[in-house]
């Protein structure tokens, strides 16, 4: 099977869906780039180049550069979705949600319910999340808990190239508004990605490995951190199950609970700020539904409750690492003999 980067998977999903369905359009700041300037058309192809080439193939009526005007173009994407298009809007950094949030949580998210089930709003909002880019406090946040909180929105956080392509195709075909969040540090990660179009359904967690001693749940970039920790735990005789929910809304709680019922221990790794985040949400729901199965405290591995710092020294300290996960597991799983 061909190997592709996370970014190539994202680009490919755009191409395949735009070829398949003429209602799919792409809009955002610099999604083509160079609009109105005298240089090259399609100069950028998105701030990270993930939409490069779309403008050349599909032209200005389907690949729309916008002014720096998040409220207007996110709202336009939402409005267009109610009228028969299937827009994919690139918000660039998810930190910019503050200047367009109303269009998402009061408009897109609410239409179907407020209008008695008669509205369909198939809009996708793509954005980058996560620390590690030395981009400091306003370009590094993992704000997915904010959108996960909103009924009517779906929230997708792929952790590898295969999922990125399948989840994005699903997002574009989905009839509900979808927030699709790409961790900046994953763009260069490679993995097997079929050339064909395929979907990965929402609300189906990926179980990356199975072990009987502890369940580790992780999202986005943290999935690799959890896998690294699981390898380290192997050497300590602790066998970990690693679960990537892939979507926080809908959330595949069933898979997590089933695993915790087997392992009795739960550790959640979440790069978002620690208060009211996905870790606290999963912890609360597991405690609510499967308290009987828990044989130790639920542990949460998150950054501290601070903005993301700039200095590389500080930022590296901020981001959860495998050793934090190992420590958290050891704090809930009783010590084992090797090979046990």
């Amino acid at each position: 099977m061909p190997k592709k980067t996370f970014k190539q998977a994202i680009t490919e999903a755009h191409f395949l869906e735009m070829r398949r369905d003429p209602r799919v359009i792409v809009m955002g700041e610099d999604v083509a780039g160079g609009q109105g300037a005298s240089g090259e058309a399609d100069a950028w192809g998105g701030s990270e180049g993930a939409t490069k080439g779309l403008y050349t193939e599909f032209g200005p009526s389907r690949v729309l550069d916008t002014p720096l005007t998040e409220s207007a173009f996110i709202g336009a994407a939402v409005g267009a979705a109610t009228q028969g298009l299937r827009p994919v809007a690139d918000l660039m950094f998810f930190d910019f949600i503050g200047v367009c949030f109303d269009q998402l949580y009061n408009q897109a998210a609410k239409f179907r319910y407020m209008f008695g089930g008669k509205a369909v709003t198939p809009v996708v909002v793509r954005a980058m999340i996560g620390a590690g880019f030395r981009a400091a406090a306003q370009h590094s946040q993992c704000l997915y808990p904010i959108v996960t909180h909103i009924p009517g929105l779906k929230v997708v956080i792929p952790s590898n190239p295969y999922d990125a392509k399948g989840l994005l195709i699903q997002a574009i075909r989905d009839d509900d508004p979808v927030i699709f969040l790409e961790h900046k540090l994953l763009y260069g990660v490679t993995g097997e990605v079929p050339d064909d179009s395929y979907t990965v359904p929402f609300g189906e967690a990926n179980v990356l490995r199975e072990g009987k001693d502890v369940t580790i749940v992780a999202l986005g970039l943290m999935v690799q951190v959890a896998m690294d920790a699981a390898k380290e735990l192997d050497t300590l005789g602790i066998k970990a199950t690693v679960i990537d929910p892939r979507t926080t809304s809908p959330l595949d709680l069933e898979t997590i609970v089933e695993s915790v019922e087997e392992t009795g221990h739960l550790v959640i790794v979440d790069e978002s700020s620690p208060r009211c985040n996905i870790a606290t949400d999963i912890a609360a729901q597991v405690a609510d539904q499967a308290f009987h199965a828990l044989r130790g405290p639920i542990k949460m591995v998150t950054p501290p409750h601070t903005p993301v710092p700039f200095s590389p020294v500080l930022e590296d300290l901020y981001i959860p690492r495998a050793e934090h996960v190992v420590t958290a597991v050891q704090a809930t799983v009783p010590a084992k003999k090797k090979g046990n």
Partner: peptide, 15 residues
């Protein structure tokens, strides 16, 4: 679980 996933991944390819 992986055998199941492999078949599902295959079935989720368009066509």
């Amino acid at each position: 679980r992986d055998m199941v996933n492999d078949v599902l991944q295959y079935k989720r390819i368009d066509g």
